[in-house]
Design a protein around this nucleic acid. Structure first.
Lengths: 332, 332
DNA sequence: CAGAAATACGTAAGTGCTAACGTATCTCTG
DNA sequence: CAGAGATACGTTAGCACTTACGTATTTCTG
């Protein structure tokens, strides 16, 4: 499922889809069992059934919809003979909704179906329903306490006010080197032995072989890393590029890449290559933009199982040009 | 929030509400920051951005919507200058959707906002987002493997095929007495000391004082219980009535109540009373129907903190009458 | 107690999606 | 290679909900 990869960005879509699915399933059950009710009616009817006659706004507040929605649904329910509307004698503005006798008896007969719904959902989804219910409840509360939009805007302001800086390796940052790389490795592949060794002791495997490690810092957070590994004199590999998932898209990767390329130039290296995987489209697009070119075949002696892409850096003709401008490519 | 009490029955409504909330929050952010995009566009645009030009159906499948939805959204996006449509030269039926240069650059500038969205949601909802994402993903999978409607119908058939039976206490059922009562106590109140004592040793506190305990059984599941406690000779208290949440609404409570009342009659008791709480509307409605009448004041020496309702059973005038028929009451 | 503000609710218009249908194109089969 | 079936996709109608607005009625305030 593609949407899952977008995570928090597509929460709305996924919740909606799940929501529709549940509505649909329950409606199907009602229909098959001949219950003369629709799943969308349930909150209103059940509220009146549990609490007794109530005004439109009262119901709307309880079930978390607008008074218009309740009002319109009421029309339909009155037509279906489930509801009676009448003016509140004590307050002429209010409309009191009351279940008809027909509705009361219809709801009374629905017990086994509701029971089956609860059980069926539990059986079908197992413990995940509990998780879902808990999580939804927690989110409902959290969302009410602190509006999400506000929180996002605050984050945005902070992000925009703080530049992403690239800093070289220092021992106290070692743990971040593992953390940032483990994140994408675990998500897309699995951690190979060679990874674990290199990631836990980068000083030995990268720095002592004449390599270099960079970190991207945003304020106090270390949000990305990449390494320049010296394979043989003058031949460098760009590797271990990783940006924290929650900080993608703000150019940290590009900064790191630029820093690595600059370092490669400073050392007057001959060849700069990288190995990657075709599933990592955004990363490949970035490499492409920075001047790496896809090679027709993968490297003969690659030390990664997951490598199916081999790219070599080609020094841009005009060195001083601002990067990012040259011809766009649709597919990588 | 009333909906929360409906649990699995109102999942659809709650998910929809949450979904709308997220859409709204993100849209607000886009608008405040002047991004020329809407949150509903994101799945389509992001897919094309990640994967490259694709056909309508391809996109629809990936983002879990119908081709019509994608087609209609495409119209809008073309009008907004974000998308180009063209026939697939290789297959004349297909329409290939391609991002315009404007869209590519617009999306490219959205990085910090997306980052802020991810971070903002995390900050606002804390660890609950993770829970929510995990639960949603798990449910999506489960729902695909086994259709929910099917599972519900299966449960329903089983429920309808199996009658609810009332059985008397036996030692191996003791644990159920605690479990079934703890469930509603924990949900609506808290477990008082007196509860814990009585619930863990019902043989001593109820049976040895001349009381009686009933269980409701559905197939192999013990789904409800209630007790008849002898307070003094001829005076009985109906208490410890509890039905498993996932089995409510199938008449188990009523069966238990009838059994208790029958036992009371068999013993030729003088007085049968109960104490309850006004929050437990469905239960009160059931007591009312069975012949209990609300007393104006609560009991002077109640042993429960939560008791705010005191009801006494009044022997029906005509003993053989079918229950449930007499005059309905709106509010309890 | 008059007039302003708030509240309750219905109606209209708009949105985002689906289901159902129709048409063009492709693919499979004998 | 003709024709049946499948596929891709646009269009229409409909649904559930929202926002915006208008109209009663009530409540507040000086």
């Amino acid at each position: 499922m593609y949407l899952a990869t977008l995570e928090r960005l597509a929460l709305g879509s996924r919740l909606k889809a799940l929501s529709d699915h549940f509505y649909g399933a329950v409606d199907e059950v009602y229909q098959v069992r001949g219950a003369r009710i629709e799943s969308r009616w349930l909150p209103v009817l059940r509220y009146l059934w549990d609490i007794g006659p109530s005004s439109v706004t009262e119901v709307a507040d309880a079930i978390g919809q607008t008074h218009s929605a309740v009002s319109q649904l009421s029309d339909k329910l009155v037509r279906a003979g489930m509801l009676r509307r009448r003016r509140d004698p004590a307050d002429g503005r209010r409309t009191v909704l009351t279940l008809t006798d027909q509705a009361v008896s219809a709801l009374g007969e629905l017990g086994p179906i509701w029971c089956a719904v609860r059980r069926g959902i539990s059986v079908s989804l197992g413990e995940h329903v509990e998780q879902l219910l808990d999580a939804v409840a927690a989110c409902e509360r959290a969302v009410q306490e602190r509006p999400v939009a506000e929180a996002i805007l605050a984050e945005h302001s902070q992000i925009m006010a703080t530049p992403v800086e690239v800093v070289p390796y220092s021992p106290e940052l070692r743990e971040h080197f593992y953390r940032l790389n483990a994140q994408w490795l675990e998500r897309y592949f699995r951690i190979e032995d060679i990874d674990r060794v290199v990631l836990t002791d980068p000083e030995h495997y990268i720095l002592q072989h004449g390599g270099m490690i960079f970190f991207a810092r945003l304020g106090e957070d270390i949000i990305g890393t990449c390494a320049l590994l010296q394979e043989s004199p003058g031949v460098y590999e760009l590797t271990k590029m990783g940006v924290d998932e929650t900080f993608r898209g703000m150019g940290a990767g590009k900064r790191l890449l630029d820093a690595a390329i600059a370092e490669f130039h400073r050392r007057k290296g001959r060849t700069l290559f990288l190995e990657s995987n075709s599933r990592l489209k955004p990363a490949l697009r970035m490499y492409e933009k920075a001047g790496f070119r896809l090679q027709p075949n993968i490297r003969h002696d690659s030390h990664y199982e997951r490598a199916d892409v081999y790219m070599i850096y080609e020094k841009p003709a005009s060195a001083g040009k601002t990067p990012g401008a040259p011809g766009r490519r649709r597919r990588v």
